[in-house]
Amino acid sequence: MAAGGDHGSPDSYRSPLASRYASPEMCFVFSDRYKFRTWRQLWLWLAEAEQTLGLPITDEQIQEMKSNLENIDFKMAAEEEKRLRHDVMAHVHTFGHCCPKAAGIIHLGATSCYVGDNTDLIILRNALDLLLPKLARVISRLADFAKERASLPTLGFTHFQPAQLTTVGKRCCLWIQDLCMDLQNLKRVRDDLRFRGVKGTTGTQASFLQLFEGDDHKVEQLDKMVTEKAGFKRAFIITGQTYTRKVDIEVLSVLASLGASVHKICTDIRLLANLKEMEEPFEKQQIGSSAMPYKRNPMRSERCCSLARHLMTLVMDPLQTASVQWFERTLDDSANRRICLAEAFLTADTILNTLQNISEGLVVYPKVIERRIRQELPFMATENIIMAMVKAGGSRQDCHEKIRVLSQQAASVVKQEGGDNDLIERIQVDAYFSPIHSQLDHLLDPSSFTGRASQQVQRFLEEEVYPLLKPYESVMKVKAELCL
């Protein structure tokens, strides 16, 4: 049975990233139509530049190519590739079939990587351009969430054990800070992308030097003109047959890092959902379990974690691919890159769409948070109580021993009897502590235990987050809708 299948058929496997999760716009960027249309555009740009620099290419040939950029006979191309065992030459023939007058000058002087690699770089750039505003929107939604809850005390956790208090907004800023680093890295790697350009079979530009009869300047002009037509500021000066596969490492490393950030955020949300302090959106008709109707599973956060793990592992592909590119190139890269580049971007696209949807509907339960604080705060307040007693004339050592005994009794009630923490009640009825009984409410005010959390939130948002989001103001209103 021949390899390949009808990918629109229910009898043929289709990647869930495309069929179930990723956005239509990201799927289109990695589609065959987008790819092969870009090949034709690159052939047109090459012909236009070659004509401008004096090669015998007519206006009629150029116009014929322009008129057929979208006229792609995919069936013919597939048949040609089956016959020739070469995808680029299959599309040269297919393009030439609908451009008979231009057929002889299509791909003039070029090698397969002229269309293959340059198209990949265009796709990487455009895919990054799709991700950047999506990530900015996630940051914006979380920034709104953090600002609104900047002063809401909550129990902090280290080692997932109760620690000092923080605020809900401050905790959210930990998430935002990681995503801001990801946004900066995505922008950097996007701006650092260079075009492969017009380089020939081993990167020496020998074929173009021959076409222009040894004119170095025209060869350099050709490279520059096509690079500018493709919208790049610069091209690699040095290439082998391909652009260095280190570029793929750079791009997928940034995406993998984004995956790590999203995994951490969504894990926190899942843990908070278990504590009943916070939940992701839950639709009115949504079913959490087929057997347990009360369940409210954090399905979206779980999906993000599941896909983020996949995204983090994909960076190993370009690392290994770059390491086995012998001399000017081997074909070890080809099949692998067809999979890992598309999957990385479709996965990143999915987790950003999902995280935006989550961040637009996060639900906080202040009463649950308050109750958990009441359970733990008495123990945390013991040092403040000791200091207040010393100020009232008591002995630190005597007070410490009193607190120690009462704390152990209260802990026994919590752990052995399943009761509430009654340390404060014990202190309130103990005559030894009568000098500070009137101060206990103040000493137990949760806001006095959150330090500068709310001020940190305000400063972080104003100095770091809002300036970073400013270039994306025009796209901030787009909502994230999930079908599944």
Rank of each mutant, 00 (worst) to 15 (best):
R338N: 04
F160A: 08
T330I: 05
Q285P: 08
L355V: 09
Q41E: 11
P435Y: 07
L128F: 05
A256L: 00
C483K: 07
V405G: 11
L121I: 03
I106V: 13
K276V: 03
D248A: 03
K470L: 14
A136C: 15
S290I: 02
N126F: 11
K187C: 08
L179S: 12
S15G: 15
Q397V: 06
A344K: 05
R296P: 07
P100I: 05
L275I: 09
N274L: 09
V414L: 13
M387V: 06
V315D: 04
A150G: 10
I105L: 09
E213V: 09
P366L: 02
T227R: 04
G214Q: 14
A47Y: 06
N297G: 03
D430S: 11
L46Y: 09
D422A: 01
D332H: 01
T321F: 04
T313I: 04
S112M: 01
V457T: 15
H93T: 11
E25R: 15
D223M: 05
S395Y: 05
P366T: 14
L423R: 05
Q428P: 02
G197N: 00
V92R: 01
L183M: 08
F30Q: 07
L84R: 08
T201P: 09
N384A: 11
S261G: 06
W43Y: 06
L222T: 05
A78K: 05
T239V: 03
I287L: 08
M26E: 05
P281G: 00
V475A: 15
P100G: 05
S407D: 00
R37E: 07
M89F: 10
K276H: 10
I122S: 03
E360Y: 15
F160K: 02
A431G: 10
E343F: 00
L352F: 15
M292W: 04
E462R: 13
F232Q: 02
D420T: 07
K229A: 02
K367C: 08
L331Q: 03
F433D: 08
R137N: 10
A342M: 15
G231M: 09
M312H: 07
D216G: 15
K66G: 05
H442A: 14
I351C: 06
I403P: 03
T202K: 00
G104E: 08
L84H: 11
K35L: 08
L209E: 07
T111Y: 00
K82T: 11
L132K: 09
Q41N: 05
K295C: 00
Q428F: 09
A308G: 06
I122Y: 07
K477E: 15
P378G: 05
H7Q: 12
P24W: 07
G96D: 09
A335G: 11
R33E: 07
K295G: 00
R33V: 11
P446L: 03
V92C: 08
A143R: 09
Q375A: 14
D248H: 05
L44C: 08
H310K: 05
K402H: 03
L443A: 06
I427T: 10
L377V: 03
I427G: 06
S306D: 01
Y13S: 12
I369N: 15
S9G: 05
G203V: 01
L53A: 07
W39Y: 14
E50R: 01
A150T: 15
A431D: 14
R85C: 14
N353K: 08
I351S: 07
D178V: 11
H159D: 00
K170Y: 04
L121D: 00
K391G: 12
F433L: 06
D117V: 01
S323T: 07
Q61C: 11
Q285T: 12
E228T: 06
L46A: 01
E79K: 06
L174G: 10
K224T: 10
L179F: 08
I427M: 10
V405M: 04
R459G: 14
Y21S: 03
P24G: 12
D73P: 14
A256K: 00
Q51G: 07
G231H: 12
R194Y: 10
A431Y: 04
Q161M: 11
C27E: 07
L128R: 03
Q177D: 11
S112H: 01
F28W: 06
K147V: 11
I123D: 03
A308W: 01
L44V: 08
K134H: 13
K75F: 06
Y432N: 09
F195C: 15
W39M: 13
A49Y: 00
P100R: 09
V324T: 08
P24K: 11
T52N: 07
Q285A: 09
A110H: 02
H263Q: 00
T244W: 08
D59W: 04
S407G: 11
R296T: 11
D317C: 08
V115A: 04
I176R: 03
A291V: 02
R194S: 10
G288E: 02
I339C: 07
G393M: 00
P153N: 04
